[in-house]
Every structure is written in structure tokens, then in C-alpha cells.
Design a protein around this nucleic acid. Structure first.
Lengths: 276, 276
DNA sequence: AGCTCTTATGAATCATTGA
DNA sequence: GTCAATGATTCATAAGAGC
């Protein structure tokens, strides 16, 4: 089974060196987006984004297993009335680095940020760029099949509740069990467009993306016991999802406060599992 | 009012020269997709796509009015298990040509062709890349407003404490300030994700987009009497939409058969309008 | 269970002001 | 003039409470 997620507090540009080559099955991360403003989250200027990220992606290429997958959540900002090109240039540069640009999923954010401007609409989508080391990679499509038809909607809702209850006894097997109930009924493979609302949960710190998002990719690209890495851990959404699904996980985070908060909440969880 | 759409039969790389500079209000087009099998429908090889398109986009830049807009419907193919990078490179190259990359809309194709592959899901989205000549361009957002959901009915009934408290407590938000402005509003602005079903009928030509798609952009970016151009006319979806909306339109199409079919159907339409 | 109603909030963008 | 900071402007969704 999986162990407690491991948190490394520091800059992933350095800390990644400690991880062994070919040791990670899946990388899911949402790096800080390019930001013109000064020092909000160590924001990187759009013009320097690619050169900032390339050394990191080089290390990610090293630590990923040959059949592993890298999912990069990113979206370009508007700079001077235009979409900035750093994401396009990053994809091209990462290919030259040796990555394969296998696919680009769209995350349709149903409740996107409000706003009205004279010459653009609200931005309701982000990129989920998939990179691989080889044409052959691990993928378990059946794990993310979705039920079709109205009768299944209630079924799906109850599954979400189970997932959220974080009952350790069901983790790992529970999800598959529920899925197996649908075998032989109407279920379909999803497409490369994901519809998910942003996190509405009331956390002290804002979650980067809803836990269902990394959970979806973890189920799709890993098996229980596999190793998941998030080099920009933040509040630990990816690590929580991995842990819930019985995967091992490593997170790297530069802000001390996030590291501490995650470690605390994880300890509470372990205790409630033992004594609760 | 608008006149009968004009069709130019020929290669747009040449035929665009006959159009006057700064004469087009909106360009909406879906160029032929890149194709490795160069035989079929004059497909362009992915590796040559950018160099093939750049002379055309240079002419489009010339004929477009300063406040006009260019909407390019495009999606990269999978080549050798990877998404090809010609679209990314094209956007970067067109910016160097003088275009502004203002926005990228996502067309979520609801009912696209089913299919299953070992390492990817159904491709359910395409890019609708918006280019402009200036930061200021014509845009009529009210024309594409969508009916508001049940949301407003219940929401506006009780505009009270919470909305105002957010104004005071939260930093820089001020959400509740003008909530009374919403009273009586029955329409909402869309986002940059468009949900439109595909017309799965004719698979022969690449331009399989539904008429609602060009119609949406024509309403958004032009006024009645304006001039719309589709340099890769195909069966004439864009021209039909423009004509229906009282806009003038020019289409360029290299395949004789499409030109003839469109001219015929347009004549029938004119006659039925006169005598029907 | 299923419905209505309440409430929180999301990686935003632009124009203006200040350094 | 350029660059950085500040203020103003804005919806739709889903979770949760209540019946």
C-alpha cells in the first residue's frame, strides 16, 4: 500500500536533484503562472518564463520513468491586450529538450472568474498539457470511464461523496468497486475536454485546482502503489488525491508555510485513521 | 443591405491579391488541415504548414481593416503519436508578421465522432484563434449574449447582507456593489468556451463547422452591411451565415465543384426569395 | 429522496495613478 | 517614458442548509 506523502521544502529547481532517475510514474503540477506583478508568489515575468522553467523540466524528464506521464496545468496571461506566447514557446522548447507533446486536454472551468471588458470575454479554460518520454506509456482508460444517461448521475454523485469521505478502508479498492458496478451498463470513455468547477471549498488558502482534477489523471495514468510527484505542491491538492487513491506521493514546495500546514493536516489524518 | 455573396474560384494565395487593402471587416475561415497523405484534397504536410500559410496570412493582414478581426479555426493533428507543433509555430510566426494574438476561443464539439485509441481519448475541441491588427477593434458583445440561467431568478430576489459584506470585508472585491444593476437582466455574456454541436454529415471537406459557429463571430465582430471574407470557402458555410445576417461576403475556393455548387444554391435562394 | 433557496468564491483584466 | 502598484468592474456554479 501507499505510505505517507513525503514533502520536501525548498526550490524544486534544486530539490529535484535528490530524486533518483526514472523513479516517478506521474507528475501532475500547476506551476506559478507568469505574473507581471512583483513578488506575489515569486511570480516569473512572462518574458523569462521559458528560461526559468526549462531547467526544471529537464530534471522532471530525468526523474520520470520511461513509461510515465507529465501533466502540466498552465494558461497564458493577457499582456498588453494580447495573449502572451510563453506557453507556446515552452511546449516547443520542451520538445527540443526530449519531451513528446502527446496531448493537450482542456479544463473547462464552469465557474470562472467574473469580469467584463470591452474587447474580451471571461476566460473559462486552462491547458492541461500532456508530455511523455516515449510513445508507449501507461494508461488505464477504463478507470476514468463515465456513466452516461440520467440514471447514472445519482450514481456518480454518491461516488463523489464516497471519494470525499476519505474512508481509508475504501481507498484503493473502493473506487474500483464502484466502477465495476457499471460494467455491462452504459458507460463511455471521456474526451479530452474536462468539465470541472474550481474549488468552492472554504479553505484558508486557495486551492490551485479541485482535487478531482489531479485525481482524474492519477487514476488514468497510475496504479495503486505508484509514485506521484508534484514539484509545485502548494497546499497539497495533488498529494491528497494521490494518498486517497493509494498512491505514493512526493511534493516539493518553496513556501515554508504550505509545507508546515500540509504536514500538520497529514498528521491529523493519520491519527484520525488510527484512533478515529 | 447586403448583396449576393461573391465567389472567387481559385487559390487564395493568388486570388487575395485582387482584394483592396483595408477592405474586410471580418475574416472567418477553417483552412484545410495538415495532412501527411499529400494527395487528398490538396492537404498540406504538417512540416510545411507554416511556410505554406504565412504568405496567405500576410495578404489577409493587408486586406483586413484596421479595426477588423481574423478568426482562424484550426487544430493540430497527431503525427507520430504526438501533437504536431505547426499551430503553435504559426501563431508565433503570425505575430512576427504583425498580427496581434488577441485571444484563443475553445470550440467544444459536443457530438464528435466516436472512437477509441490505446493512448488517447476522443478529440472534442478545436482552437478558434483570434487575431487583430490593433488593440482596439470592433466588438459587439451584446449581440451574442446568452439567456441567463435560473441563477438570476432566485439570486436577485434577495440581494442583502452578504453581497454588501463582501464589499466591505474582502480586499478589493466589491462584488456586491452594483448587484442591483442585474435586476431585470435576462441575458448574460458568454465566455471564451463555445459549446456547439458538429454537423457530422459531410466528412469530405475539412470545413465541417456548423453555421452557428461563423454566425456567432459575425454577430460579435461585424454590423449589417459589413464585409466578411472566407479565403477557404469550402461549401460556403461562412458565406451563408453572413448572407443570412445581412452582411456582404466574399469567398475564395480552389475546388471548382464547391464554387459551382455554392453559386447554384445561392441562385435558388435568390429566386425563392423573389418568387417564393 | 428530491426540491428550493442561500451562500461562497474563482490563477482576471483594464484604466488610472504613482514612482 | 517606462514600469509597477492600485482601484473598479464583473457571473455562474456547486455545495450546503432547510423543508
Amino acid at each position: 500500500m501507499n505510505t505517507v506523502p513525503r514533502v520536501i521544502c525548498g526550490d524544486c529547481a534544486q530539490e529535484l536533484h535528490v530524486l533518483p532517475t526514472n523513479s516517478i510514474d506521474l507528475i501532475v503540477t500547476s506551476p506559478p503562472y507568469a505574473d507581471q506583478r512583483k513578488q506575489t508568489y515569486g511570480g516569473i515575468h512572462p518574458d523569462q518564463y521559458v528560461e526559468w522553467f526549462l531547467p526544471i523540466s529537464a530534471e522532471l524528464l530525468r526523474v520520470l520513468k520511461p513509461e510515465g506521464t507529465f501533466i502540466l496545468n498552465i494558461k497564458e496571461r493577457v499582456v498588453g491586450g494580447e495573449r502572451h506566447t510563453y506557453v507556446l514557446k515552452l511546449i516547443i522548447a520542451m520538445r527540443e529538450q526530449g519531451w513528446l507533446w502527446t496531448e493537450e486536454f482542456i479544463w473547462h472551468k464552469k465557474n470562472c472568474y467574473p469580469g467584463k471588458w470591452p474587447n474580451r470575454f471571461r476566460d473559462a479554460w486552462e491547458r492541461l498539457v500532456q508530455f511523455n518520454k516515449q510513445k508507449k506509456f501507461k494508461m488505464f482508460q477504463e478507470e476514468v470511464m463515465v456513466p452516461v444517461g440520467d440514471w447514472a448521475k445519482t450514481r456518480l454523485r454518491s461516488l463523489n461523496d464516497t471519494d470525499k469521505s476519505r474512508d481509508e478502508s475504501k481507498v484503493g479498492s473502493g473506487f474500483g468497486k464502484n466502477i465495476s458496478n457499471w460494467v455491462g451498463r452504459d458507460k463511455a470513455y471521456p474526451s479530452n475536454v474536462l468539465h470541472m468547477a474550481t474549488e468552492c471549498a472554504n479553505r484558508s488558502h486557495s486551492a490551485v485546482f479541485p482535487e478531482t482534477l489531479p485525481a482524474w489523471f492519477i487514476r488514468l495514468f497510475t496504479e495503486p502503489g505508484d509514485m506521484v510527484l508534484d514539484p509545485f505542491m502548494g497546499s497539497g491538492t495533488t498529494l491528497n488525491a494521490a494518498n486517497d487513491l493509494g498512491r505514493n506521493a512526493i511534493g516539493i514546495e518553496i513556501h515554508q508555510i504550505y509545507c508546515e500546514q500540509f504536514t500538520e493536516s497529514m498528521q491529523e489524518r493519520q491519527q484520525s485513521m488510527l484512533f478515529g
